[in-house]
Design a protein around this nucleic acid. Structure first.
Lengths: 155, 155
DNA sequence: GTTAGTGCAAACCTTTTGCAGCTCT
DNA sequence: AGAGCTGCAAAAGGTTTGCACTAAC
C-alpha cells in the first residue's frame, strides 16, 4: 500500500484514494525504478484486469503534478515514452548505457552546486531538475570496440 | 550555407549534401536556438515550398547521429516535441521558466566536474549529456504569487 | 550509372479527450 | 448526495516507414 506520506500529500489536495490509484502507487513504490506507463499498465493489469490504460496515464499525471514522482526520458533509450520514479529527497543524475540500456544513478556534490549556482545566478526558483547522461558502460565499451572492428572488415 | 566543418563531417560519413539538407543546416545554424521539427519545417517551407516534413525529420536524425546537433526536451514545455540546437564545444544546462517559457543557458564549473566524476566513478564513456531545469524566472515568481493569491480568494 | 535521398501516403507509438456511468467520502 | 474518478472509444500529436521516383556523386 502507498506510504502514509504519499497518502497525506494526495488527500491534502482533495485527491481521492481509489482502488486503482492505491494499486498504481503501490506498484511504483515497490517496483524497481524507471517504469514507463505501458509497463506499469501491464503490471497493474495482472492484479486488476479491469484497470484501463487511461487510468495509468491520469494517475501518473496526478502524481507528477503533485511532485510525488519524477518523469524521465532516459535519453529515449527504447522509444519516446516517459519513465517514472518515486521522487527522492536527494537529487541525482541518470546515466544510461546506450548499448545495453543499464541505468546508473549518480548522487554527488556537483548537482547540488549546480542547483545553488543557478538559483544564485539567475534568481531562479527551481521546481524540477533532470540530468541525463548517455554513453557506454565499461562492459559495453569493450563490446563496441569489437563490433566496430568487425564492421570495418566485413569478411 | 552550412559551415565547412559541418560539411566535412557529413561528407566523411558518405552523406550527400542535397539542396534540402543545405537549407535545413543553414536554418538551424542561423536561427535563434531551440527549434523543434515543426518550426524548422515551417521556416524551410518558406524558402522551398516543395520540401517535405519527413525530410526534416530524416535530416534531424542524421545530424543527431552525427553529433552535429543536440536534442532537447526543455521539460516538455509546450508539448512532447523535441528541440534542436547546434552542438557547442561547451556543455551547458538549459533552464526553462515553466510559466513564460523563457530558456536560459548556464555554462559552469559544476557540469564539467559532474562529467569528470561520472567518467571516473563508473568508467563510463560519455557521448551525450543533458541537464534541464524547470521552475520560475524572477519575473514570473512575482506574477505567480499574485495568481495564487487570487486563486485563494475567488471574490 | 549507382547509390543514396526525396516526397507522398499511410502507419505508428504514446498520450489526451469526451462522455456516460460508477464510486469514494 | 454529489463531486470526482473510471472505462471505453475515439482523436490527437509527434514521428517513422514503405515505396516509386529523383538527384548527387
Amino acid at each position: 500500500m502507498p506510504s502514509a506520506a504519499t497518502e497525506n500529500s494526495l488527500r491534502q489536495r482533495g485527491v481521492r484514494l481509489t482502488r486503482q490509484r492505491r494499486l498504481l502507487l503501490d506498484l511504483i513504490d515497490q517496483s524497481g525504478k524507471h517504469l514507463d506507463a505501458e509497463s506499469l499498465y501491464q503490471l497493474a493489469k495482472e492484479k486488476d484486469s479491469r484497470l484501463n490504460r487511461v487510468t495509468v496515464y491520469r494517475t501518473l499525471k496526478l502524481l507528477k503534478e503533485g511532485g510525488l514522482v519524477d518523469e524521465l526520458d532516459l535519453m529515449h533509450y527504447g522509444g519516446d515514452q516517459h519513465y517514472y520514479e518515486t521522487r527522492l529527497k536527494q537529487e541525482h543524475a541518470h546515466i544510461i548505457c546506450l548499448r545495453c540500456g543499464k541505468v546508473e544513478e549518480f548522487f554527488g556534490e556537483p548537482l547540488k552546486k549546480l542547483r545553488h549556482q543557478i538559483e544564485a545566478h539567475f534568481g531562479f526558483q527551481i521546481l524540477l531538475a533532470r540530468t541525463e547522461i548517455g554513453g557506454y558502460c565499461p562492459h559495453c565499451q569493450a563490446l563496441r570496440a569489437q563490433e566496430v572492428a568487425q564492421c570495418r572488415r566485413p569478411e
